[in-house]
C-alpha cells in the first residue's frame, strides 16, 4: 500500500503538472486490437482512473455511504444528518422543505471555513443522458446558490453532475425516480 501511495502521489504530481488545460495528455490505454487480457489492464493503463481514486478523493464515499463525519452529522435529530436534497421532475428548484436543511449546512460551513463540500447533482433515468447531466448540474448549482446566499464561500463548494449515471435506487418506477432526482452534499474529510 505504501509503494502504491507514492506511485499515486507521483501520478497526482504528473497530472497536476499537465494541468487541466486542453490537449497534450496523450497516454497509453487499453488497445482495441491486441485484446487478450480483458478488464484489468484497463484501470491500470488508463492511469487517471487509478491515480485519482487513490490520491485523496477516495474517502469521499460515493453513493450516499459516506465515511463517518461524526458529531451532529450522525445525529438523526440534527438537520446536518440530512445530506440529500430531492427535486421534482425536470426541475432544479429547491423545495421549501429543504431550506432548513441547507441553512444548517450553511451555518456549519460558515463556522468551519476550511471545510469543503462537493455538491453532486443527479437526475432520474428518463430522457436523454447528456440533458440529465445538465439537469443534475443545475440542481447542484441551485443548492450552491442557496448556500452562498447564506454567506458560504464559493471556494468551499465543488460541483459535479453525474446525471443519471449513478442512481441511488435501481428500480425503474416513480418511487425510484424520486430518490434519484437529488443533490448529495458530500463533505470532504480532511485527514
Amino acid at each position: 500500500m505504501k509503494s502504491l501511495k507514492s506511485v499515486s502521489g507521483l501520478l497526482l504530481i504528473l497530472t497536476l503538472l499537465s494541468g487541466c488545460g486542453m490537449f497534450g495528455d496523450t497516454e497509453d490505454s487499453p488497445t482495441a486490437e491486441g485484446q487478450g487480457s480483458g478488464g484489468e489492464y484497463g484501470a491500470t493503463t488508463s492511469g487517471y482512473g487509478d491515480g485519482s481514486s487513490i490520491s485523496g478523493t477516495e474517502t469521499q464515499g460515493y453513493g450516499g455511504e459516506q465515511a463517518s463525519l461524526g458529531g451532529s452529522f450522525d445525529d438523526p435529530q440534527s438537520p446536518l444528518s440530512k445530506r440529500t436534497i430531492y427535486f421534482n421532475y425536470d426541475s432544479s428548484q429547491v423545495q421549501d422543505a429543504f431550506i432548513p436543511v441547507l441553512s444548517a449546512h450553511a451555518q456549519y460551513l460558515l463556522a468551519h471555513p476550511q471545510q469543503r463540500v462537493t455538491l453532486e447533482g443527479h437526475a432520474d433515468e428518463r430522457g436523454s443522458r447528456e440533458y440529465n447531466i445538465a439537469l443534475g448540474e443545475q440542481r447542484a448549482k441551485a443548492v450552491a446558490r442557496m448556500l452562498e446566499a447564506e454567506g458560504v464561500s464559493p471556494g468551499q463548494l465543488e460541483i459535479v453532475s453525474y446525471g443519471e449515471e449513478k442512481p441511488a435506487a435501481y428500480e425503474h418506477d416513480e418511487a425510484a425516480w424520486q430518490l434519484n432526482r437529488r443533490v448529495e452534499l458530500v463533505y470532504q474529510i480532511n485527514r
Binding site: P30, T31, A32, E33, G42, A43, S46, G49
Partner: peptide, 8 residues
C-alpha cells in the same frame, strides 16, 4: 472488444 474501462 473493450477499449476503455473505468470505475467511474
Amino acid at each position: 472488444q473493450t477499449i476503455a474501462t473505468s470505475s467511474e
